[in-house]
Nucleic acid binder design. Structure first.
Lengths: 329, 329
DNA sequence: GGTAATTCTGTAACCGATTAAAATAAATCA
DNA sequence: TGATTTATTTTAATCGGTTACAGAATTACC
């Protein structure tokens, strides 16, 4: 490969100890006399030694590698999640192999298989297609961690977010603004987060004695936002406000509005969900519910380090939605 | 870790051969008698064997792992690049460890060190801060591949894109639209791509016997687009068209325009560069020059597989810009 | 001071592959 | 058919760590 790296044997020789001792100094589990330890550390520094991962994995039967399956990694939603996981795990001196599902169920399955074959110590799955049951099955093969969802058997393997409260909050805001005819474009309702946001929406309306103007089921993509907005504008009885279950669909919708000369929020108010990075630069900027994905991803990684490797990072396991008021509603 | 996986020894026993033979069947370099080979393959299937990566790495002194350093992975620009690299390498049965630079020079350096310590076989660097000289240095420690740039000593290690032609194309389009007062907000001019785009812009103006109205140096961020747009609007002598060196800055600028009631393209035309996914959903949708990042990233990965592992993927090493006309100009 | 308990360190067996070198089997040729 | 060549397979060393076990050095205690 490249210039030969120094090995544990060289360190041992230089420090005048056996390689077992060096290994102990490194791992820190068995006690080593202070004087010996510092001699070893010096040798390590002198040789700028760093242990060979392959050898270490082979001997310990751990890969120190975590697999991250993301439905895609090239979108505004998954990027921060991947980023948060990566940062935290690198801090814990583990590394992350990312495998993208390339936006399909088959792709996600391939990614999972690939990573398990690579013998990762654990998986972080941020999926768009895998069902909870399937995740449960995967979890039997390799410990799985998820964020913003759950799966049977993974009760202590997830970081949760109160999507219900978020849906309620978004809708309540529209109600507070005086809207009576509120519609919602949800995500795929078989998905936990999408469904909870929808239920939260209903709850808020009910409490205000309002009826949901109507509901459409989208798929979280910009295209789906466009299509649905299009069809909404063709209706006789337009809503005065729409709650889109994520910002991406809201972006698609805003685009359609702009094209058709519909003023937002004057003609129709639009609220999104997620608070993507780009949402604030949109015109109009998007009023939304913040889902702190990056922080949640970080927390997931810490949870994983604690649970799989016996680390002791302090944990925050539940995150709450936050209303971000901007121009679109 | 998990249920014990089958080993090469088990396969060998089941097939009635030595493990060396199994290894050969797998690697395919030394010939194996057909009859033996099929017996081995059967055994492999029966045990659903897949080789232990750690053992393989240790013995062969290769990790079959590529490190991907991206300045960030949570933005619209780097996402597709990371995705393209990942997909191609996974197809080549290698895996990718991603390390994000978290948007700083220090971070990028850390990421590089981390990956080299992990003994990756090669690095793909998509940087925002590392200088060509520094990349050159890194290349001495571990083979480096880059896209949309070069570095001394890396002449056959990059996939190139004609940024000059792109800058010219963008500017020419504005000229063709009849604009006389054309300004540009460039990227950091020490960066090769930013500088080339700028030169291309100048060339086009020169050929049309026009003077550049003025030039400002941005840093490719949305914020920088906003700030510069702000200052442009405060000028006495506003340009009628602006060429932003990337879409992200253009987005920031559009946001400012919308806030200030400036009509795009009527009052000021804006053209971007990159053609990010989101650019078409903006209002107005962004006229831009397409930089096929995903494809280029894929090509980079193939180049790497050929060069580092002796694969023979067909290669496309140069990509060309393409004008995407939308609403903003 | 002697023995037991405790702390520290070394020995050596693994982990599961790759790969040179040696051994064997099969094919070719006179 | 026996000697050569050539094709195939096995043997065994090796990669660089971890870790159970045993031995040595210290410390504690009577």
């Amino acid at each position: 490969m490249k210039k030969t790296m120094s090995t544990i044997n060289q360190v041992a020789t230089l420090a005048g100890v056996s390689k077992a001792t060096v290994s102990r100094v490194l791992s820190g589990v068995t006690p080593v006399k202070d004087e010996t330890k510092s001699r070893v550390l010096e040798a390590i520094k002198a040789l700028s030694y760093s242990p060979n991962q392959a050898a270490r994995s082979l001997a310990s039967n751990k890969t120190y590698t975590i697999g991250l399956v993301a439905s895609r990694i090239d979108t505004a939603y998954y990027g921060p999640a991947a980023s948060g996981v990566e940062k935290a795990l690198r801090g814990g001196d583990r590394h992350v192999i990312i495998a993208s599902g390339n936006g399909s169920l088959e792709g996600e399955r391939d990614a999972v298989d690939f990573l398990i074959k690579r013998q990762v110590d654990a998986l972080v799955i941020i999926t768009n297609f895998l069902s909870e049951e399937e995740i449960s099955q995967i979890n039997l093969r390799c410990p799985v961690f998820v964020l913003n969802q759950t799966f049977p058997g993974g009760e202590d393997r997830h970081i949760s977010f109160d999507n219900f409260a978020g849906g309620e909050m978004a809708t309540q805001y529209l109600i507070d603004k005086g809207h009576k005819k509120i519609a919602t474009v949800t995500g795929p309702l078989w998905k936990h987060d999408a469904y909870q946001r929808y239920l939260g929406c209903q709850k808020a309306l009910q409490q205000a004695d309002l009826a949901l103007h109507f509901q459409l089921e989208g798929n979280f993509s910009a295209n789906s936002g466009m299509t649905h907005m299009q069809s909404i504008l063709e209706r006789e009885d337009r809503p005065t406000a729409i709650f889109f279950a994520n910002d991406i669909m809201a972006m698609g919708a805003l685009h359609v509005c702009a094209e058709q000369g519909i003023k937002v929020p004057e003609d129709i108010a639009i609220i999104g969900f997620d608070d993507l990075d780009m949402s604030k630069y949109y015109s109009p900027s998007i009023t939304t519910i913040k889902l702190p994905l990056y922080d949640m991803a970080e927390a997931t990684a810490y949870l994983l380090l604690n649970s799989v490797y016996g680390a002791h990072f302090p944990l925050k396991t539940t995150f709450s939605p936050e209303l971000i008021v901007r121009q679109s509603a």
